[in-house]
Amino acid sequence: MTVRSIGAYDFPSRSRQELYGDDQLVHLWFQENPWFCASACFRAPKAMTWGDFWNALVVPFAEEDPDFDPEARRVFTLHGAQFEPRDDQTLEEIGVEHKDVIGMRVLV
């Protein structure tokens, strides 16, 4: 099913990756933590390392939760599979694409 229209109907996405240059949007889903009402959306360079992503973007956002523990053991998921990020890996090397959702769960 497509749009029924009076003329040609073909417009570019208003969130396509090229609008962000060398960056992309990355969503982080705080699973099993209702303190954050929805997943966070960050703009991050594709070449950003996981260590920088974690320290510069995730921690300042997440520490607003009084129970946040940056050292806690966590399970990360991407495209339905678990992965273990290394701090020196870039987001691109991990396989994170524009508008992906990274799942994150604290191991109890």
Binding site: A40, P60, F61, E64
Partner: peptide, 10 residues
């Protein structure tokens, strides 16, 4: 404290 999110949501 007062819970205000420090960023943007999906």
């Amino acid at each position: 404290g007062r819970h205000f999110v420090r960023g943007l949501p999906q």
